[in-house]
Nucleic acid binder design. Structure first.
Lengths: 200, 200
DNA sequence: TTATGTTTCGAATTGTGATTCGAAATTTAA
DNA sequence: TTAAATTTCGAATCACAATTCGAAACATAA
């Protein structure tokens, strides 16, 4: 019998493990990360990790699932309104930008994880993937409605998506290097990019 | 004693191995790729790979070194001239675009490899990294000169670099999915992005 | 307080895959 | 033609890290 109190305690421990795992995954990647190291980070014995999770992969997946769920839920309210697509679009980017700024480690992981993932883990429509898809779908939808309203230039929306996705990603995780950028700078930059682009 | 003929033959075999390795690395990543599989792809016995290379990592590194060297050497002549920075910039992008289009597998690998690489392999200034740095340095230089000449808007060049890098990368390796884009489309897109941006 | 359920853990176990070995095949050159 | 050098390879090693085990520590509630 599991009391309510105990359930919460378990959650806390899962979080503790997840947090440790994030640190290790982030710097070693999925393959190079060892359970020993994760255990040490999380301050548990190795075997305990297996009490809470089935496998290393499961930890990895859970991290993704929770992360993308959180992104989706943060975005959702801002995109209900389809009256001003460009505005909603900007607002959503703004929100994500805020999340990223507040928790760089997690988001760097979320946006980078797919790269470190062997195809096998993508089997069976993972939850995180569906959140990710929903999100991209909405962005692309806003783009298309924005074009229809003349708020964005006419252009294949999927290409525009790639461009903006790449831009956003590039701004945060500067492909080839070192430092990050402040929220302000990025916001200004994206705004001016989309703005200029739309106006020319 | 190694005759000239033999040396060339060796090179051919190294190429053969490298080519097989590329295929495997591309779809499995560095960790998941096995020497057995690479050997099979290259049509050699596993042990033979060790006759030509020290280790799996060495194969990986050699792939990167040769690839980046090739990029650099293709770019170099086009950027000697600093009279028209924007033009040189575009021309260089154009060249890379061409290379990419002609050899997608290799370039997807080159641009993705850093993601799959554990920090250890970055020790000791690897050759490929220095080519990469040279390249980014030149691009950034052209950007700055272009700004000085009013061909690009005033803006922190490193941020502009991230944006364009992300844009380029996004266009080719559409972060979240499936198909690629044609050279024509990409060229038009980048041109119009930089063009609009510069003019607004 | 004690029996039962829950949680923890270090020490085996196991599987996988990189690397090495040593013998054969092939090529070279005298 | 034949000895030396080069190349090839499948079958051992060997290392490493995921997973499992079984015994303790701890909590709960009767």
């Amino acid at each position: 019998m599991i009391s309510d109190r105990q359930a919460k305690e378990r959650e806390r421990r899962k979080d503790q493990i997840l947090k440790g795992a994030l640190t290790v995954f982030k710097e070693k990647g999925l393959e190079k990360a060892t359970m020993d190291e994760i255990a040490k980070q999380a301050d548990f014995g190795k075997a305990t990790l297996y009490y809470y999770f089935h496998s290393k992969e499961e930890i990895f997946i859970e991290l993704l699932d929770r992360g993308w769920k959180m992104i989706w839920e943060s975005i959702e309210p801002a995109i209900e309104d389809h009256e001003q697509p460009k505005e909603s679009f900007m607002q959503a980017l703004h929100i994500i930008g805020g999340l990223v700024t507040d928790n760089k480690t997690l988001f760097e992981f979320l946006f980078t994880a797919p790269q470190m993932m062997p195809g096998a883990l993508m089997e069976g429509k993972p939850a995180w993937k569906s959140y990710q898809n929903k999100m991209y779908g909405v962005f692309q939808g806003l783009l298309e409605e924005g074009m229809a309203k003349g708020e964005f230039p006419e252009m294949q929306s999927d290409i525009m998506m790639r461009a903006i996705g790449g831009l956003f990603h590039g701004l945060f995780f500067l492909g080839h290097g070192e430092k990050r950028m402040s929220r302000e700078t990025m916001e200004e930059f994206i705004t001016s990019f989309i703005g200029n682009y739309g106006n020319s």
